[in-house]
């Protein structure tokens, strides 16, 4: 059973590499994860528009394919930047990359077969 405590996480060398010491509100928002979040919201709006006849793509099939690809790009970004797998050991990082690629291809394949 783990008993040791981490008195002040920011002083631990292990924490510092992945989690810098955030001391001000400006530092709090200044991260790649914040930029990724803005992209995720914008991508959601675009997908919603494409899927509800507010879109700019006439072909329903093309719009649906774009929506599917965008969905898995979003999944990849959540995995890499929110779950912090960007800096995970390579096998774990490869797992999220492979998941996005394989499941995206499978869903597109099943969609096109329909």
């Amino acid at each position: 059973m783990e008993t040791s405590t981490t008195p002040a996480p920011s002083t631990s060398e292990t924490f510092d590499a992945a989690h810098p010491d955030v001391r001000t509100p400006a530092e709090l928002l200044r991260s790649s994860a914040s930029a990724v979040w803005v992209f995720l919201v914008l991508a959601t709006v675009v997908s919603w528009a494409l899927g509800t006849d507010h879109g700019f793509v006439e072909s329903t099939r093309t719009a649906s394919l774009i929506v599917l690809v965008v969905a898995f790009v979003k999944v990849r970004f959540v995995g890499l930047y929110f779950m912090e797998l960007k800096d995970a050991p390579l096998p774990l990082r490869a797992l999220i990359e492979a998941y996005c690629l394989v499941v995206c291809c499978l869903t597109i394949g099943f969609y096109l077969a329909g």
Binding site: F15, D16, H19, P20, V22, A33, F82
Partner: peptide, 13 residues
Amino acid sequence: FIVLTMRVIHSSN
């Protein structure tokens, strides 16, 4: 909000 939590949980402030 959870991303922000993980950032401040290490803060010395």
